[in-house]
């Protein structure tokens, strides 16, 4: 119960704000500790098995002189960034992802895993709590539900054009999100984030015994690992677009709204 009937509704409910910031922390730690874990074996496969002698659809190559990323048959030189980079002491390191992108910044698979699993629990409970709470306080139905009118291609196209002109809100619109925002939030919250949890669990040998179907759904353990990585990448893209629109829409005001709640009506955006 974050608002009462006679108070002016807030732009963001307490549950949304609380979850947003817990989630931001979890996302950061999970991505960075995940990169530590990835560094232990920087190769991705499709199917159930996959090791050094098997074909990897994506792999990081490293040596003392160069670093590169290979996707399919395409090699991209990433010397200085991935596969070959200098640590804070200027020494060349050949781990896949550089120290500034990993937790911990030095290579420790065991410590990376501890960070990852600890924050995975917080993230999973947070997501479950937010989903249930948002259904009960009608955040999903009122703010995220995409109406039939909004699904019309003409409507979506109008929102795309407005987005390109950096006009994020129809003046006077009661709803806080436009159709593009709704679609991306729904995809992230209800598809991508659960996908990260389940592809993660699908890599566990104990879960494979408990729920064999889980690994099968994703086409095998190595496919689950690849999807886990791709999902991380899509989340990273979402985060970057999220930051860009934040900067364009007025970073201080928008960030403050996500902390204090903000106002729901008549708050024309930049």
């Amino acid at each position: 119960m974050t608002e009462t009937q006679n108070r002016k509704p807030l732009r963001h409910r307490l549950t949304t704000r609380l979850w947003h910031w817990i989630n931001a922390l979890c996302l950061l730690v999970l991505i960075m500790s995940g990169l530590t874990i990835f560094n232990a074996h920087p190769r991705l496969y499709w199917g159930e098995y996959g090791a050094n002698d098997d074909y990897a659809w994506a792999a990081v190559g490293s040596s003392q002189t160069i670093g590169y990323v290979r996707v399919g048959e395409t090699k991209i030189d990433t010397t200085g960034f991935i596969g070959n980079w200098r640590d804070s002491e200027g020494k060349v390191q050949t781990w896949a992802f550089p120290g500034w992108a990993t937790i911990p910044s030095y290579y420790s698979l065991a410590e990376g895993r501890r960070w990852h699993f600890f924050f995975a629990w917080i993230f999973s409970f947070g997501l479950a709590f937010f989903m249930i709470r948002s259904l009960f306080n009608r955040h999903v139905q009122k703010d995220l539900h995409i109406t039939r009118a909004e699904w019309r291609p003409s409507h979506i196209w109008r929102d795309v054009k407005n987005h390109m002109r950096l006009r994020f809100h129809t003046p006077g619109a009661v709803n806080i999100y436009n159709s593009l925002q709704k679609i991306s939030y729904v995809v992230v919250i209800f598809i991508l984030l659960p996908l990260m949890i389940f592809t993660g669990l699908a890599m566990s040998p104990a879960m494979d015994a408990n729920w064999p179907l889980l690994t099968d759904i994703f086409g095998g353990r190595q496919s689950a690992r690849s999807l886990h990585f791709i999902g991380m990448f899509v989340l990273l893209l979402f985060f970057m677009v999220h930051m860009m629109t934040l900067l364009l829409a007025g970073p201080l005001k928008q960030t403050w709204a996500m902390i204090a709640g903000g106002k729901r009506e008549g708050d024309g955006d930049a």
């Binding site: 960075m32 937790i103 410590e111 501890r114 960070w115 629990w121």
Partner: peptide
């Protein structure tokens, strides 16, 4: 944040907190 994480990562007390998630993994699995 990074150097903070490293300091935390090297602290046995914090490691124990993080490792509690592994106990949860064991119990739940």
């Amino acid at each position: 944040l990074l150097s903070g994480c490293d300091a935390l990562s090297r602290s046995p007390g914090f490691q124990n907190i993080l490792a509690s998630a592994e106990d949860a993994n064991f119990l739940v699995q």
